[in-house]
Nucleic acid binder design. Structure first.
Lengths: 221, 221
DNA sequence: ATTATACTTGAAACACTTTTCAAGTGCAAG
DNA sequence: CTTGCACTTGAAAAGTGTTTCAAGTATAAT
């Protein structure tokens, strides 16, 4: 059986590999976790993960940890659910204005979120939603209403059709549904709203346009 | 500008990463090419590839070569299994003779295979097995008998010990177990047969010798 | 013939990584 | 209280891998 620590280490390996394109060394794994002071400790856990079939690895080969893409690790049973929540910074309200909302000084506070909602900790933040432009959109079984918080994965920069994305267009932050025409390549950002005043936004290459992440969850107010 | 040698090296890196889930070391790259006797030579080419923007790499970090897919670094994760079944061309029977069996005109038909058997679609084909030279070998829980089909991953060109490989030696196709002596570097191809007439084949550098893929599955007749 | 380009050679120095092992800690169940 | 489990510690040895450099080769273009 796999333990909570090993699951954390697994997640770190996955996220490290995603970021860099290669696996971490045992030394780096140890460095990343305060409960591991030596590579030998990382070795212990990595060997466990390997024995359980969650990763593959080759002896004496640096950075040879590989992840099986079709194998998901279930979060082990948590004895103390309270300790398993994490703090996520709340940034300025979504449609409030300039792109500078991403600066650190605009952090409004922190939201406490159960870690099981998320795949990874880094790069996720919360935004308070203002307006009704997305009140028909659904993330899981929730809609997005004024005053709710949306969790945004800022590492997700290559949206697929129908993803709800956070974008900044001409210095204005928006939460819209992403739609790209596979033939013309034209990108459209659609409001999923009961309010007809929200028209789709067509992106032209001259617009100052950026996808800042994907909405992965909604936390009702 | 990139040269032909560099393109070859690039392709090797890609195929190695696909097979193993991690990048090769400079030493391994050098070993793989007869025109490179030292890691420093591989270093030279890899640096070129990096300067030209074809790969990314980190200084002093072993096996940190990464390949760009679009603009994102493609992590060499192991691929997962899909859902539906796919068509795989059936080539001429294995020991029927010359290497030209790989030409398209020798496709005998198609075999319908559940994709879950395979890691990837492209580069996989089926071969009908003739003879008893491998009837003791096992792929998963199956042996390889006359009349069976073996699935060959032709992108897998860097076999490990005990892999069952498809090779072409002096224009003759063979399915044998791959064994390389880690000290001498000598390569031996062994028949796993109850029939003692099948002797191991020792590969010398003067032989016209090529690994064409790895047997990844057996489909019983 | 000279120059430039595109490499290869060879060794050594240096850096990074893995592996091992014996001894310990802290916690929870019996 | 004892045992077992799930780890952590600490250091050192044994790999594995990268980088540098100076010198040399081979080919093609000027």
């Amino acid at each position: 059986m796999i333990t909570k620590k090993q699951k954390e280490i697994y997640d770190f390996i996955v996220s490290y590999a995603k970021d860099t394109g290669h696996a971490p060394s045992l030394e780096e794994i140890a460095e990343h976790f305060s409960f591991l002071a030596y590579p030998s400790s990382a070795y212990y856990h990595v060997k466990k993960l390997q024995d359980e079939g969650y990763i593959k690895r080759e002896s004496n080969i640096p950075r040879s940890i590989g992840i099986y893409a079709d194998k998901e690790i279930k979060t082990p049973f948590l004895k103390n659910a309270g300790l398993d929540s994490i703090r996520i910074p709340i940034l300025g309200a979504v449609n409030a204005g300039p792109a500078t909302i991403f600066a650190e000084e605009n952090i409004e506070g922190y939201l406490k979120v159960s870690r099981s909602l998320l795949n990874r900790k880094d790069g996720i933040f919360a935004l308070r939603v203002e307006g009704d432009s997305m009140n028909k959109a659904r993330i899981g079984k929730n809609d997005i209403e004024q005053g709710d918080f949306v969790l945004v994965d800022s590492q997700y920069r290559n949206p697929k059709n129908d993803d709800i994305v956070l974008s900044v267009i001409d210095d204005c932050a928006n939460i819209k549904k992403f739609e790209k025409d596979s033939k013309t390549g034209e990108v459209k950002l659609v409001s999923e709203s009961t309010n007809p005043k929200h028209k789709p936004i067509f992106i032209s290459s001259k617009d100052d346009f950026m996808i800042n992440g994907k909405v992965i969850n909604v936390i009702k107010k």
